[in-house]
Simulated assay, not measured.
Amino acid sequence: MLAPVRDRTALADLEREITVPGSGLDRLRLVETPFVPEVRLHLAEDAIVWWARMEAAAGHPLPPPFWASAWAGGQALARHLLDHPELVAGRRVLDLAAGSGLVAIAAALAGADQVVANDIDPYAVAAVTVNARANRVLVTVSADDLLDSTVTADLLVAGDILYDAALAERVLPFLQRAAAGGAEVLVGDPGRGHLPTGRLEVVASYYPVPTTEPSVDSPVRRVQVLRPA
C-alpha cells in the first residue's frame, strides 16, 4: 500500500480536468456507472493514458489512478447496497479504499445517516469529492491510513480491496477486528485469488458485472459480496 501523499493540488487538478476536458483517450468523462446507472462518476476514457499525461505534467510519479475506473467489486457492492437499502438506512457507513467513491455514494443514496469515504491517494479523495458533488450527496472524505485503527462505523464496506497479497494481509485482520467490534462488514471481490479459506462467507453473487478497469482478460466478471464468517 502506498504511503499517504499530501498534495493539495489534487482537487484543483481534477476540477480543471473536468472543466476543460480533452478530446482524446486521456480525458475524464462524467458517465453512468455500467452496473449501477443510478450513480454517475468522472472516469477516464483510458486510465493508463490519463495517468501518463498527468505524471508528465507533474514531473514526478503519481499513485496509479484506481479511482478513474469502475472496478467490478465496487460496482457489485454498490448494487447490493442500493438493492438492499435496509443495510444502510440510518447507519454510519465507512467505505474503505473508496477509490472513485462509488460505494460511498451508493450508501448515501440508499439512506445512510453518515458516510465516510477513506483512501490514502489524494487524487482518490479528490475524485470522491467531485463525484459526490455530481450525485448531490454528502460524503465526508478521509485520507488517513486506517488499517491500524479502530472502526467507529455501523457498516464497513470495501469494494475490490483484496487485489494484492501484501495488502490483503493488512486488510483482513482489520476487517475481522471491525466485525468483532460490532460493525457489519461487506466486501466485494471479483475473485482475485487472495480470499482466505473459511474466513469470509458469501452473501450474494453477481454476474455478469462489466468493468472499465484497464488491461483485463475479460470485460465482465463474477463478483461475490462477502462478510466475515
Rank of each mutant, 00 (worst) to 15 (best):
A168V: 06
M1I: 04
D7F: 00
Q114M: 01
E15K: 14
V137G: 04
D83E: 15
R8Q: 05
V116D: 02
D83F: 02
A104V: 03
F35Y: 15
A108I: 09
L11S: 00
G22A: 07
L167G: 10
S205Y: 00
A107V: 05
L2T: 10
A134D: 02
Y207F: 14
A158D: 09
V209C: 04
L82N: 00
R27A: 12
A110K: 01
V137S: 06
A52G: 04
E169W: 01
A10T: 02
A124W: 02
G193T: 06
L146N: 04
V202W: 06
A108V: 08
V151I: 10
F174T: 06
R170L: 14
L14S: 04
A10I: 03
Q224F: 12
S149Y: 04
V202T: 15
G59R: 00
R170K: 13
D113C: 01
V203G: 09
L41M: 11
A104H: 02
L81F: 02
P228Y: 04
L195F: 08
L41W: 11
H194D: 07
E213G: 07
A98V: 04
E184F: 02
D119V: 01
V141H: 02
G73L: 01
I120R: 04
A47N: 09
N118S: 08
G191Q: 05
A89V: 09
R53K: 15
A110I: 01
D46L: 08
D160Q: 08
V187D: 01
P85V: 07
L200C: 08
A168G: 02
T212Y: 09
G22S: 09
A158T: 10
V115S: 03
P210A: 14
A58I: 06
F174W: 15
R27M: 03
P122D: 03
A112D: 01
D164I: 06
A153N: 06
V202L: 11
P214F: 13
A58G: 12
A47W: 14
D145H: 06
G193R: 02
P210G: 14
V36N: 03
A52M: 12
V115F: 08
V216M: 15
R29C: 11
A143R: 12
L167S: 14
S100C: 07
V31I: 12
T19M: 11
R40I: 12
L94W: 10
T211K: 12
V157P: 01
P208N: 14
A158Y: 05
P196T: 10
L167T: 13
T19D: 13
A165Q: 15
R6V: 12
P214Q: 11
Q114C: 00
N131V: 01
E45K: 08
T129I: 02
A58F: 06
V185E: 00
L162V: 08
D95W: 00
L81E: 03
A3P: 00
G111E: 01
G59P: 02
G159K: 06
A178S: 13
